[in-house]
Amino acid sequence: MRFVLASQSPARLALLRAAGLDPVVVVSGVDEDAVAAALVEPAPEELVTALAKAKANAVIDDITDLDAVVVACDSMLFIGGEMVGKPATPDIARERWARMAGGSGVLLTGHAVVRIDGGRRTKEAAGTRSTTVHFGSPSQAEIDAYIATGEPLQVAGAFTLDALGGWFVEGVEGDPSSVIGISLPLVRQLLAEVGVSVVEMWK
């Protein structure tokens, strides 16, 4: 059985590889704004889980393995009463860091798992993991330098835990792997729900 990661995130892929898996990457190409717009006043958990499910469903037809599990994720930061994803511009990233600095936010990652047996979809499971992130207070020069790298424009909430953004994170309460983009404990649980043992997938 193959493990299919429906994501182009290098952080998710690196984390899974470090955790003993050898994922096949199939990028979903889902229009996240369209999926979100179709929901009526979704709760934060509902939003990220719906996006993860949409990504998993989008790649099913591209899976050529007869037996596989497809795993998709979506992360967003809940801060100041709103859900935010990747900042579209440096100015938005700068404004976001002005709000985040010295404060806290909740990083939510929705997960969807679909099992395929004999080329046919047989079982699925989904869930969300929430982790509180405490941000440091970088200087304006540090924020400008960070934004200039381009990294915060590529990631939910305009920060990373496992790369350059880690310099500006004071701590997390909860699952650090979920902040990186995929919760290893939750994926293990969801795989078990569809009848797959993660230890049997270790390379």
Rank of each mutant, 00 (worst) to 15 (best):
A50G: 07
R2Y: 07
R12S: 03
V26M: 08
D31A: 08
R188S: 15
P138I: 08
T128E: 13
R2K: 13
L39P: 05
A101C: 06
G181T: 09
A112S: 14
D62N: 14
H111G: 08
K203W: 10
G80H: 02
D61P: 12
L15A: 08
L39G: 09
D31V: 06
K55F: 08
V133M: 00
L161Y: 00
L190G: 11
S177N: 05
T64Q: 15
M201H: 14
A158Y: 05
H134R: 04
D67T: 13
R120G: 01
F159T: 00
E124F: 10
S137P: 03
G85C: 06
I60E: 14
R115K: 15
L186C: 12
W97G: 05
F135A: 00
D62M: 15
D91V: 12
G85K: 09
D22W: 11
M76I: 03
H134L: 01
V35G: 10
A34W: 08
A72C: 09
I180W: 02
D67I: 12
L77S: 01
V194C: 12
V24D: 11
A19M: 08
E173M: 00
I60F: 10
V84K: 02
E200M: 05
K55I: 07
I79C: 13
R17T: 12
G150D: 02
G127Y: 08
R188H: 15
A192F: 12
F78K: 05
V155T: 09
Q189D: 15
D33N: 06
T89F: 03
